[in-house]
Design a protein around this nucleic acid. Structure first.
Lengths: 359, 359
DNA sequence: TCCACAAGCAAAAACGTATTGCCTAATTCC
DNA sequence: GGAATTAGGCAATACGTTTTTGCTTGTGGA
C-alpha cells in the first residue's frame, strides 16, 4: 500500500512549495510558464489527483451535481419503466463525467434530509419539477445553482432546458389530421408539470384553429398501460367517439391499443393512436406506436452543460429548447387496401428502423 | 443568508464542547445518556447537518457509493432501453439514501479518471462486471470495498449479490418442456458475464438430462431486437428447427417474435418463446412475452445493503442470492382450440397483470 | 544611489469534523 | 481514609487543499 500521492509529494518531487503546485495546477497566481508546465508534468507523472473533499472544505467546489427526480405524492418512482428518464439519466451521467463532475442521484422521498447540505453539491438538476415541489423551493432557498428540465410551474425563475412541447404537439396533431383524423382526443393526467400544461395549450389552440370539439380524458397518475386503457374506454364509449387518440406518455398509448382491441376496433383502420416519448415498448407493440420523441439524450446533455457553464461562470443561455421529432409507425399508418392491420407491415417497419439505428 | 450551522454552533447552543457534540451525535466516547439526548435535541433544533466533506477529510467516510455500469468495448450504454438496469438503479438509489449514503453514477468509459480517487468513494457497486473489466481490477487494487451484482468472472473474489441463474434457467426450460417443447434452442450473446456462463451451464445440464441436442445461436452484442431477429432466423432456417426459443435478454426475445412472424410461424402455436428479464415491452408485445424475471429491485437493494453493512463493519454474508421467478404470458401459452393467437387472450392477461400490480 | 514595483515563491491561515490524549471530580476498592 | 479506578468532558491536533499574506530578489526609473 503506497501512500497516496498528495500535493505535498508533488511539491517535493518538483522541488517547489505546495503553494506553487496549487497555483500551477489551477492557473492562479503569477508563475512563469516554465514552472507551470514543469509542475504539471511532475503531477501527471506521479498520477496526482486532488482530493475533492479537501478542496471543498475551503469553500471550493465539490464536483458533485445532484440529479433530483421530482415526484408527486403517491406517484411511483419516476425511474420505473420510464424510458425517457432512463435515457436522460444516462446521457447526463456521461456529460457530467466529461466535464469533471459526478452525478449524485436523489429522490424527493428523501429530500427532507437535504442532500445538498450533506454533500455540498455544486449544483442541481431537477427533472420535470411538479407543481409545488418542495425540493425545488428548498434548493432555490439554499441558493443552489439550478437547472430544470421542463419549466417550473410555480413562477420560480430558473435556468431550464425544455422541449418545445407546444410546437411538437401541434406537429403531431397535424400529423394525425393529415392521416385523416377528424376527431382527435387527448389523454393525459392532470397537468402538474410544464409539459402537461403545454400539451393542453397546444391542443386547445389546435381545436380552436380547426373548429374541432375538444375531447379530453384524464388518466390516473401512475401513467401505466392500465391508466391509458381506462381513459381510452371512457372515450370510446361516448356517443361521438374519437377517430384518433393522442396521449401524453407512451405507456398510456399502449393502454389505448389494448382498449381499442377490447372494443373491437382496429388500429390504425378505425382509430389512430399516437403517444409522447419513445421507448422499446412503443417500437415493439402491435401495431408499433407512432410517437413524438422528446430526445431525452439531448435534454440530459444540454441540462448538464448548461449547469456546468453556470458553475464555471461561463456565459450561458437562460433557457434552451431541444427539438422534438415525430417517429411515424404503424399506429398512424394509412390503412392498407385490405383494410386490416398486417403484422408484416409492422415487422418490416420495425426492422427497418432498427437497421437505421444500427447503421 | 444566515451562517450555516456547524458543529461549533451546536456546541455553543448546548453549552458543551465540539468534542462532546461529535461524540454525542456519533455514539462514540463515554457520555451519559442525558447529555447525548440533549445535544441531539439541540442539533435537530438548529437543523444541523454535518458536512460530509469535512468529515471525510479526517479519514472519515464520504457517504458516497459509486455505482459503476460495467461495459464492454463497443457496447452501447448499459442504461439505454435496459429495464433491468433501470429498476436496479432506482432501488439502489432509494436504499442508499435510506442508509445515509448517496449514489454516484459512473461508467466504464470515464474510468481512466478514477472517480474513486477524486470523490473518495466509501465503496462501490459494479453491476454485472464483464470479463476483464478494468474498473473492477482498479477498484480492487485501490482496496475499495466492493460489491458486484452477478459474480466476477476473472477469479476475483468479491462480495456479490446474484440471481440463481442456473436454477432459474432450469425452471424456465422445464416450463417450456411442460408446455410441450421438445427442441429448445438458446439465443444469447457471447458470455462475458457470469449470468451468461450460468445460463449456458444450465442449458447444457438440461440437454444432458433430457437427451436433447443443444442448439445455440449467438446474438450480436448490442442485445437489440435486431440481434434477436437475426439469431432467430438462423435457427428457424435449420433443417431441424426448434419448437421453442429461450433468450438471455428480453429484447432478444422480442426480436424472435418478429422473426417468427416473418417466417410465418405463430407464437405460441408453432413456436414457444421466452426471455430473461422483464420489461414493459415484454408485457406489451404481441403475444406478450413469458419471461424469467430477475427481480432487479431486490438485487439493487440487497447490493446496497450488503455494501453498507460492509462499510459499517456489521456482519454480512459474502454472497447472496436473489430469487428469480417465471412470469408466464402469451408466448408460452398452450395453444387455444382454434389454433390461432387471440389478441383478446393477451389483452385480458395483460390487464389482469396490470390490475394485480396496482392492487 | 535610492526607491518603487514586479516577479517568484514560501509560510501560514482557514475550512469543519473526528480523534487522541489529558484533566478533574466522583466513585469504588482495599 | 487513602489509593486506584472510572465517568465526564475539554483542548489540541490532524486531515489536504486553497487562498492570503509576506518575503526576497531583481529591475527600471528618478
Amino acid at each position: 500500500m503506497a501512500k497516496p500521492v498528495g500535493i505535498r509529494e508533488v511539491a517535493e518531487a518538483a522541488g517547489v512549495s505546495v503553494t506553487t503546485v496549487s497555483h500551477a495546477l489551477n492557473g492562479k497566481g503569477r508563475l512563469p510558464l516554465e514552472t507551470r508546465t514543469r509542475v504539471r508534468a511532475v503531477a501527471a507523472d506521479l498520477g496526482y489527483t486532488p482530493r475533492i473533499a479537501a478542496r471543498n472544505l475551503g469553500g471550493g467546489r465539490s464536483g458533485l451535481i445532484g440529479l433530483f427526480m421530482s415526484e408527486a405524492e403517491g406517484l411511483p418512482s419516476t425511474l420505473s419503466g420510464n424510458n425517457y428518464f432512463t435515457e436522460l439519466l444516462g446521457a447526463a451521467t456521461g456529460a457530467a463525467l466529461e466535464h469533471g463532475y459526478a452525478l449524485v442521484l436523489a429522490t424527493a422521498a428523501n429530500s427532507q434530509s437535504e442532500p445538498w447540505r450533506r454533500w455540498a453539491l455544486d449544483g442541481a438538476i431537477v427533472v420535470d419539477p411538479v407543481r409545488g415541489d418542495p425540493v425545488l423551493t428548498a434548493l432555490r432557498e439554499a441558493d443552489m445553482p439550478l437547472v430544470t428540465t421542463g419549466r417550473p410551474t410555480d413562477g420560480i425563475e430558473t435556468y431550464w432546458v425544455d422541449n418545445d412541447i407546444v410546437a411538437g404537439t401541434r406537429s403531431m396533431l397535424d400529423h394525425l389530421a393529415r392521416r385523416g383524423a377528424r376527431r382527435i382526443a387527448l389523454i393525459d393526467s392532470a397537468p402538474i408539470r410544464s409539459v402537461g400544461l403545454d400539451l393542453r395549450e397546444a391542443y386547445a389552440a389546435f381545436c380552436a384553429d380547426t373548429a374541432m370539439a375538444p375531447m379530453i380524458a384524464e388518466a390516473a397518475w401512475d401513467l401505466s398501460e392500465h391508466a391509458g386503457f381506462d381513459a381510452a374506454l371512457q372515450l370510446l364509449e361516448r356517443a361521438d367517439p374519437p377517430d384518433a387518440i393522442y396521449t401524453s406518455y407512451d405507456r398510456l398509448a399502449l393502454g389505448v391499443l389494448l382498449a381499442a382491441d377490447a372494443s373491437g376496433l382496429s388500429v390504425p383502420r378505425d382509430l389512430l393512436v399516437a403517444g409522447c416519448t419513445d421507448s422499446v415498448a412503443a417500437r415493439m407493440s402491435s401495431p408499433s406506436l407512432t410517437v413524438l420523441t422528446l430526445n431525452p439524450t439531448d435534454v440530459g446533455t444540454r441540462a448538464v452543460e448548461l449547469l456546468v457553464a453556470l458553475l464555471e461562470e461561463r456565459p450561458a443561455p437562460e433557457h434552451e429548447y431541444v427539438a422534438t421529432g415525430i417517429i411515424s409507425r404503424g399506429s398512424t399508418r394509412r390503412s392498407s387496401r385490405r383494410g386490416r392491420n398486417l403484422p408484416a407491415v409492422g415487422l418490416a417497419e420495425q426492422l427497418g428502423e432498427l437497421a437505421a439505428e444500427a447503421g
